[in-house]
Amino acid sequence: MAGSNPNAKPMNLTLNVWRQPNRSTEGKMVEYKVKDISPEMSFLEMLDVLNEDLLHAGTDPVAFDHDCREGICGSCDLFINGRSHGPEKGTTTCQLHMRKFSDGDTITIEPWRANAFPVNKDLSVDRSAFDRIIQAGGYVSVNTGGVPDGNEIAIPKDIADRAFEAATCIGCGACVAACKNASAMLFVSAKVSQLALLPQGKPERKTRVENMIEQMDKEGFGACSNIGSCAAECPVGISLENIAILNREYISAKATSNNLA
């Protein structure tokens, strides 16, 4: 079957891929060649080609996380040529297409690097730290049932829109990976601002930010130094403004909450 662009010429590429058998064994970069890569392929489809080749050659394929392959589940997490999710702005690895590369290119592929994200194997890392931060307070404490009608509280459209924009975070970890300090502030700020903006989030506003930041620090992420790499590399465009909101929420919570601990 021909591609949708009949002029697209297949490419030959050199890949430098991080291989590491498991968490406790040291890894290294390994060079592979892939041939006849269509520019219409997604980056992960190119890796599929590599893995089929490796499997046929009797070698263990490269492990990497992926799932929906449409940019929303947040599973894929490759550090490509020195950038989170590669060179294209606002794009997850699965939505990056090979037309962004040229024949003969050498592509370096590494896992996210942060102590809070230990490597499972090859390019797969453990991002459960994000889950633990959400568990520390990234929710509104309502049980199922017994809630008011959805239209009971009117929420101004611009507030709803801003909360939505913050809520679109896919939890991929590109922000941590791109940050010089391996800081998780953009991730945490997205959830904190979403719930701080909405009336539903108000009752737990103070405890939420206090607990989430405490957990964030416990996980060993670095501190934010307002560099902005996170927002620049975020595939869904979470804004730095959220970090300012997070800081504000934290300061006001710490200054006024009844929590003495």
């Binding site: 020195g82 809070a116 391996a182």
Partner: peptide, 19 residues
């Protein structure tokens, strides 16, 4: 603290393209 947050660095790091 920030240095300690990333024990293992990257082989390729192009931060100049994002900050």
């Amino acid at each position: 603290r920030n240095k300690a947050a990333r024990g293992h660095g990257y082989a390729q790091w192009k931060a100049e393209q994002n900050s």
